[in-house]
């Protein structure tokens, strides 16, 4: 087959002439018949590349279906998780909190923005519990997210234990009495970090806190809790100033409050 063509008799002009004019070909009808016969001879199982595709599909359809189901399940479970600090405020079981007498009107005229939280926690300590509840929900949420090296079952158990510890921390903290409304805003806002600090001692919480994206979520939850708390706490502070006899400062704070919250309905005891 690889014979050298040195002794091959040839006549290039004649070959060129022959190839130039020898162009007759079989009819398309016979082409069609032969190609159809060739395809038919291959049989039903191996008819064409389409049949190969069919075999490929039959071989891989089960793994593909499983993989697709898994991906869809994971996607849906991720989509079902509420964003950090959004709406979900679980009721924290704990000792009955006696609402401060002065706080009752504040709850009565709760900030419309803070209505969901105020409905659950009408008083300041209860609102602190609401903030803690946010943290608790966040901890559960973090526990639900897939974490490297933590088994799902362990993760659920640990998150439950974290939630329980948060609840017990809230319960263990003595409910502030009505005599304490003079506490400053900063002191009150320190309650949540203090409680959080007790939880942070837990190793699971530390792992969760170390997870990427955790810091922004916590900051967002804090800011939301702060926003919910601000108006009523401010009013409590104004009341405390009045009780202390610092009327000038109380008036100044009240004016500032009105400027800050022009639509907020003032409690009766603070109306001019």
């Amino acid at each position: 087959m690889t014979e050298p063509r040195q002794d091959f008799p040839s006549d290039p002009p004649l070959s060129r002439l022959y190839r130039q004019f020898a162009t007759d070909e079989p009819s398309p009808a016979i082409d069609e018949r032969i190609l159809a016969a060739a395809e038919a001879a291959l049989g039903a199982g191996e008819r064409s590349p389409g049949a190969n595709h069919g075999r490929w599909w039959r071989r891989w359809r089960t793994p593909l279906a499983l993989a697709t189901t898994l991906v869809l399940t994971l996607t849906l479970s991720l989509l079902q998780q509420p964003p950090p600090g959004d709406g979900f405020v679980p009721v924290v079981p704990g000792p009955p909190v006696t609402p401060a007498p002065a706080a009752a009107p504040a709850a009565k005229f709760a900030d419309p923005e803070a209505r969901p939280a105020a409905a659950v926690a009408p008083s300041a300590p209860a609102r602190t519990a609401g903030a803690l509840s946010d943290r608790q929900a966040e901890a559960r949420q973090q526990a639900r997210q897939p974490s490297i090296g933590v088994d799902a079952r362990d993760r659920d158990a640990k998150s439950e234990s974290v939630a329980e510890r948060v609840s017990s921390a809230v319960a263990a903290k003595p409910a502030p009495s009505a005599a304490e409304p003079a506490a400053t805003r900063s002191e009150r806002s320190d309650v949540a970090p203090a409680v959080a600090g007790t939880v942070t001692g837990n190793s699971t919480e530390a792992q969760l806190a170390a997870a990427p994206g955790r810091a922004p979520a916590t900051a967002l939850a804090k800011s939301r809790a702060q926003a919910v708390r601000t108006a009523s706490v401010w009013l409590d502070e104004i009341r405390a100033l009045r009780r202390e006899g610092n009327l000038q400062e109380a008036e100044r704070q009240l004016r500032e409050f009105r400027r800050e919250y022009p639509d907020y309905p003032l409690p009766e005891d603070l109306r001019p």
Partner: peptide
Amino acid sequence: AGDAQAFT
């Protein structure tokens, strides 16, 4: 091997 396109 079953490739009809090869025959074509």
